[in-house]
Design a protein around this nucleic acid. Structure first.
Lengths: 121, 121
DNA sequence: CCGTATCCAGAGAGATACTG
DNA sequence: CAGTATCTCTCTGGATACGG
């Protein structure tokens, strides 16, 4: 959806999708699952997230078709989460953002130091 | 910061920067300011955001060196917000994400419809 | 015009306890 | 092991009113 100036028009729907997919923990979960499938508690060990939030994150990603929940065996229950083909298409753009934060971290720190110094209070 | 497998290692700092720069309104403000400098109330007309949230968003972006606040004249006060060179480097990666939401919107909708149908409750 | 100050409601996050 | 169920608490964010 672009206007005559070929400019991106951001709708509420775009924002909604972004909120679901690029939130605090989703990015971390995606990065992990792009490496290989992971179990629930395995993800918990890798990411400093509570059970509740991890469950919510996985459900949202599963609902949107980004990850897949696979029951591997019963007794004891084993569940594995895998990235889907749709989820894989997210990796490059997300990595681009992450690389940006990496490359410009110091610029940002310097800007903040300047701002905090200049700004009274 | 990559490990031996050349895998991105996401730190709390990455997440902090992402949270400041890719939040609900920042993306919209960035898109607008990449077009041309804008006044405060001009941005309000273009974006469905409250005064409070717009002020907060602009301050955060200004603090991190992404946008610049320029007082154009007094009496009546006129203030202009401009994208900085650092801010411009954000445009491509952010556009990549937005394009992703655009291209995969329908896949996501379908996945959600399936999920909601299959999931009792 | 460009904000700041204040209040208030709702979402999200942590801690904890419990279940198939 | 892989969750669900509460409860509490903070924090965001909208609405509103006021100020330089």
């Amino acid at each position: 959806m672009r206007d005559t100036a070929d400019r991106l028009v951001i709708t509420a729907e775009h924002r909604e999708i972004l909120g679901q997919v690029l939130d605090k923990w989703s990015v971390l979960v995606l990065e992990e699952l792009c490496e290989c499938p992971r179990r629930f508690n395995e993800l918990r060990r890798l990411i400093p997230v509570t059970q509740k939030s991890l469950t919510a994150t996985l459900r949202r990603l599963e609902r949107s078709g980004i990850v897949q929940r696979v029951v591997v065996s019963d007794r004891p229950v084993a569940v594995e989460y895998r990235i889907t083909p749709l989820g894989k298409t997210l990796r490059d753009p997300v990595d681009a953002i992450l690389r940006w934060t990496e490359e410009h971290r110091h610029d940002i720190e310097q800007a903040r130091a300047r701002f905090d110094e200049d700004t009274p209070g």
